[in-house]
Amino acid sequence: MIKDTIKIAEEFSRYPAGRFDTDGPYSGEKFRREFLVPAMQEKKKICIDLDGVRGYGSSFLEEAFGGLVRVGFSAEDIFSLMTFHSSDPSLVIEIRDYIEHA
């Protein structure tokens, strides 16, 4: 069952890194496949909590969130279903930018 909030640090990893599965065990591709795509397919409204992670790489963020558009979800659908929470506003701006320009 998909929760209302996905806390990346608790449910995925405090050390997410890399774009593809070949780049490491906690890649953006894996996060997208295991958390984001199922939520989008269920059309469930979710909040992605970005706090608690020991630093994000843009390659992870781009593949996880920008990759959603490349696998067939529209930016409008993503924004209507997903909200982002972070104490660092630049992370939310970055994710939105990757979704808009994927």
């Binding site: 890399g18 390659s59 701006i93």
Partner: peptide, 20 residues
């Protein structure tokens, strides 16, 4: 300013970073 922080992170960690 948040946009500039994002550009700062992106310039370093988008390409050729955490990659095999």
């Amino acid at each position: 300013f948040s946009f500039l922080v994002f550009q700062f992170r992106k310039s370093i960690t988008l390409n050729n970073f955490d990659s095999h």
